[in-house]
Nucleic acid binder design. Structure first.
Lengths: 345, 345
DNA sequence: TTTGTATGTGCAATCGATTGCGCAATTAAG
DNA sequence: CTTAATTGCGCAATCGATTGCACATACAAA
């Protein structure tokens, strides 16, 4: 019922030439006459020829596929990254394979293995939170497969000398905190994340530095650590309420934590931003809808994806000559909304 | 500097046997002695052997890769679907290539072509809104590549006799509307989407049917059509305010439209749910955060992805014997939140 | 001992496209 | 009218793994 797929050999036979010539004609090789090219193209069309990328990939040792490893796809930020990556690499003829680690080191390891076996031409990755041992990443580098890291970075990974794209978490936190200070808040609490993850460490550093610069003493009791999920935010909200003296502002290292706390605080009669100002981090889509709209830090996910992809392409171009890994640090953007506007104009 | 990758031939040479035997040993072929198998595995390990899927794919005519086409990755619902698909097919040894159409028929066409050329073993797709001509989908079927449609369906596509997974939009809308009626709302407006897209047509039908069943006359002037984006919702909010007589409830076929309108209404002193009750559709993550939290319809994206993936696997299994395409209709779930709770307990 | 059935491997073709090298034929240069 | 350069195309190997078929040895049944 289904006739076999047509190959360059079928075209060759039809025209009484060889497959080599067909192959060259289709690729517009200069040593093939225009007449032949035209004939080949026409016949290919007639026979519904469809190139088999797998065969080409095998022969050329290049699959034109790249792998992207993210913790999870249904998180706005990572989804935006995928979008950005796709836009750029598709243009250059690459396809994208997505793998999710779910923040599990085992899945991450398995994913990398599978991608490598699939002969991907490169891997863009954001490592799983729980990963502490990075030999599977070394393996990528050892196999000479371009590796680009985005969003999350780790000392061990940095020593791999690969390109990376991250945002300046320190600066984002600094901007956020400074904004609160400028709005007249003084007793600013900080919802922080696990300190072994650099982004959270950096955000905390930015927070502390902003306080220092403005001569506000750092009060350790105002800094609390959690996984920063929505539920954790609610817990923290309750915790804050139990404090002897309430803070007059909160800078949360994640929007979820901020929104969770906001909910609890509001339910307990605390007015935002009058009583307590709140700033989040991530610019999740919902932050503009919550009441009051949440001031936050935008990470430019799509752009991060685009730049990561571009670095990969540069790597491929520079292969022959030389390619020096580079680290790009994006500047996050403070998005001011109602939740932190104490001063009324 | 980089030693060539090791192949089964290298292993064969090392052990003075042939590549055939190595290949079989690695696949645990029954005709290979345990002794040899052990030797092969050990040597493979020693030489850091890594199978080349591309070579296997070429020979076997099976890439173990499937393509997923979605309108856009940075939409919560589609991201969830990807997550669900991945979970299921990874288990079965497949990888997933994502392509986004951005709702453009041209990109969709190009994506399908590229996926086919990549020799994917199957394609799961949600077609682009603007697509009106479906020959590229027919092409998939003609090439005997399993095609599973999810979320969006179209008459022409249904005639292709492929499997599909959709939600019962009619029922979702019916539930939403009935819920409003039960809450005591009587003058219920409907924010509808483009009627040539079946999901919007179905939602409207559900809305109308619920009214009928409850003996509420359908008032065409209460039904407005838009693209249902956030901005459109704001516009509609304004439009509603200009009506002679305000509705006492709104059922929006999309959360964005609902939230946009809610914002405008609130800003104009309208109380929700006291003055106007609102129900959305999609259960976007932000709906639980907005003030008041939005009652909406959940579409079970992850489950939809899982089922689609399972259908694909079934298709592959049934290939030899027989495979009958099936259509699964998921029942959406009404998530009741504050925005529609007129009755106070 | 003879015939028969497992058991363990090797041979060689194959999947489809690519590419270095070689050889004619055509054209340009001297 | 040679010699040299250019143009156009075919030959055959190659990428790495898979697999139908053949073949030899071993062991069992008769």
């Amino acid at each position: 019922m289904k006739n076999k797929k047509t190959t360059i050999h079928d075209i060759a036979e039809e025209l009484d030439i060889t497959a080599s010539t067909v192959s060259r004609a289709l690729k517009d090789h200069p040593r093939i006459s225009d007449a032949t090219k035209e004939l080949v193209v026409k016949t290919a069309d007639k026979l519904d020829y469809q190139p088999n990328h797998i065969a080409a990939a095998l022969r050329k040792g290049k699959s034109n596929i790249i792998g992207v490893i993210i913790p999870m796809a249904d998180r706005n930020f990572f989804a935006s990254i995928i979008r950005g990556v796709e836009e750029v690499v598709n243009q250059a003829g690459y396809r994208v394979i997505i793998s999710q680690s779910n923040d599990s080191p085992e899945k991450e390891k398995a994913n990398i293995k599978a991608l490598l076996e699939s002969q991907v031409d490169g891997i863009l990755a954001s490592y799983a939170k729980e990963t502490t041992e990075f030999s599977h990443y070394e393996e990528i580098v050892n196999q000479n497969v371009p590796l680009i890291l985005f969003d999350r970075l780790h000392e061990t990974l940095e020593s791999l000398k690969v390109s990376s794209v991250v945002i300046n978490d320190y600066l984002g936190a600094y901007k956020a905190t400074e904004h609160l200070i400028e709005q007249g808040y003084k007793r600013i609490a900080h919802f922080s994340g696990q300190q072994h993850i650099s982004i959270y460490k950096e955000r905390r550093r930015g927070y502390e530095e902003a306080l220092k610069r403005h001569n506000i003493p750092i009060d350790e009791s105002l800094i609390v650590e959690s996984n920063l999920k929505l539920e954790a935010g609610r817990e923290l909200g309750k915790e804050v309420l139990s404090w002897d003296k309430l803070p007059d502002a909160i800078f949360s290292a994640s929007d979820y934590g901020a929104v969770g706390a906001m909910e609890v605080l509001k339910n307990n009669g605390i007015r935002i931003p009058e009583d307590i100002g709140i700033v989040g981090f991530l610019n999740e889509s919902f932050t503009s809808f919550v009441e009051p709209a949440l001031t936050t830090i935008d990470q430019h996910g799509e752009k991060m994806g685009q730049i990561s992809a571009q670095k990969f392409l540069d790597h491929m171009d520079g292969e022959k000559n030389n390619y020096a890994p580079s680290k790009t640090v994006l500047n996050p953007e403070l998005i001011v909304r109602k939740s932190s506007l104490k001063e009324k104009k």
